[in-house]
Design a protein around this nucleic acid. Structure first.
Lengths: 336, 336
DNA sequence: CTGTTAGCGCTTTCAG
DNA sequence: CTGAAAGCGCTAACAG
């Protein structure tokens, strides 16, 4: 394996010149540059990035903390992150955390260990809280961007949807169709997503003069199974809802299956709405009415924000809110 | 940021001793070890992994080349890789390649650049071919493991399914139900997966004395859309098939939608079978008959093989074949 | 514009 | 069992 010294010798210049010719071409005369490049070629030289990183104290790695990789929504977000990172010359270190705080803290430590330059956290949890870090970083703020599910009073740059407004828009849609008993299949209890979407749901109810009935809310955990189960609970109770708003598409798809198994039709007997607009949403039967989120853009924006911060191109903490889109398909219809 | 020298001073020992106390505790007396650990604590010392990696010439990073991250099957494979890597103290560098050879080559170069110790390739393409590498590595073989879609005569360790046998099992199942005109929605033309599955399909046909009719095969690209489109072609032709074998679940789900839109019922009018058994397969309507693959295990096995190779715990090139499982649900039924 | 020089933080011989 | 010393491959002052 040839190193920078080999190249220097071959080109008849110093190692510093080789380094410059490669990293900062305009600081070197065209002639020398050409010589160096030729020598690089001849030696089959590949810079040892480990050494480069070590010396320049930057890894160009971004650690991405994902609760569950195998989730179509997160997959899209990751795709967005990876695309933007690549363009900017960064790599993505994937960290599957299962939403465990200890695991998240451990991965976040990669920044202190110099394994990664920054962190993108896709969950509302601060892995640096009480870690005594902070003073080590400019502005006392570890290089983290919080995306998708964002902490309250987030001290980091963030990217999210206006979940409350989106949930309200969806509920309004159901109300306009005449529904007054609208069930909800919720996401994980402690998530701000869940709380905000419920708030939006209540906003719409209030505006329509419908009284809020807590017994219409069922817990879920964003899986197909939990949607299936929760729908079972809702449709077999006394006085079941005429519509169900699910906090993500997977649960909606699970719910639709359960409803049909109960001998009911969607949307004739009961309307079902989702959230996210994953690829499968338009292929469910019936195709799902849902809220489309720009998932790839979440990722790209988060990466952009983080990289700007890392490269000192950022003043202040930006909180970005991305637009949603109510997509009406066939799983919702007028109340009977 | 404290470094190893700070700790040495605090503990009243040399830096070498600190290094040993941390990396190879049994080479150091218990008393010294205790002193060092206390000093580490007091200084809030975190080893600079960049330096460690640089010095020891290992990154503990695995580069994973994925054609499309946003694909439920690959998501599961990645989950498996990441879990195994984490246990062994490795990180996963995610590389979304869109199946572009140039991008794959570029990412594979991370190994030569010392950004990653090894590569897991999920596609049947050798990113090191003709790169003149080889002599740099023990056994002349770059540290790569090929998983899921495996190259022919693969020179690397590999993990795959017996796709031919699996496709035959599925086709046999359809034949047993009385189907004799069985359409196929294929994967990408040049993929060994496609070729092997078609071979298995033909095996079953031959065994049943059914003549192979090439016009029953439709191209697809593993997306929902392509399944939808291809099914349209098949059901609107003269003498349409009574069953369709799709080379993955997404295309099957797309196909089912198209069939229903054509006013036909699944499986009464036409049976549909998939491949992969993604989570959505059991939630389609009707639930999909498919071939289950141990996706997470693909990932875990690939990671294990690669790490064994990296740590010199491997002699010879292992080719692992994982078991499939025919899962019969409701999308296939007897021919009318 | 280019060369000299001094390390980055750590691991690893090699002596003791 | 421990310390001294060398050096991994590269970058970044600093002089010229």
């Amino acid at each position: 394996m040839s190193n920078i010294r080999t190249v220097a010798r071959l080109a008849g210049v110093s190692v510093a010149t080789v380094s410059r010719a490669l990293a900062k071409p305009d600081l070197v005369s065209p002639r020398t540059r050409k010589k160096v490049l030729a020598a690089v070629e001849a030696a089959g030289y590949k810079p040892n990035l480990m050494a480069v990183q070590f010396r320049s104290r930057r890894t160009r790695n971004l650690a991405v903390l994902v609760p569950v990789i195998a989730n179509p929504f997160f997959s899209r977000v990751i795709t967005g992150i990876q695309g933007c990172a690549r363009e900017a010359g960064y790599q993505v270190l994937l960290c599957n955390t299962q939403g465990r705080e200890e695991t998240e803290r451990e991965y976040a430590r990669m920044v202190q260990n110099f394994q990664a330059d920054g962190v993108i956290q896709l969950r509302a949890f601060d892995p640096f809280a009480d870690s005594g870090v902070g003073s080590d970083f400019p502005g006392g703020l570890p290089p983290l961007v919080n995306a998708c599910e964002v902490m309250d009073d987030c001290r980091y740059p963030s990217v999210k949807l206006d979940n409350r407004a989106a949930a309200r828009a969806m509920t309004d849609h159901l109300v306009r169709l005449g529904h007054r008993r609208i069930g909800v299949i919720k996401g994980p209890q402690r998530s701000p997503l869940t709380r905000d979407r419920i708030a939006g749901y209540r906003d719409a109810l209030d505006a329509a003069g419908i009284i809020y009935d807590e017994t219409l809310l069922c817990p879920g955990d964003f899986t197909l199974q939990s949607g299936h189960r929760a729908a079972g609970t809702l449709i077999t109770r006394d006085n079941p809802p005429s519509a169900i708003f699910c906090e993500n598409d997977e649960m909606a798809i699970g719910a639709i299956q359960r409803i049909k198994q109960g001998g009911l039709r969607v949307p004739e007997d009961i309307s079902v709405a989702g959230f996210d607009d994953i690829a499968f949403a338009s292929y469910s039967d019936p195709p799902l009415t849902t809220i489309a989120q720009p998932a790839e853009e979440f990722g790209a924006t988060a990466a952009r924000l983080l990289i700007d911060q890392l490269e000192g191109r950022q003043q202040g903490v930006t909180h970005s809110v991305l637009p949603y889109d109510l997509v009406v398909r066939d799983s919702t219809g007028p109340v009977r």
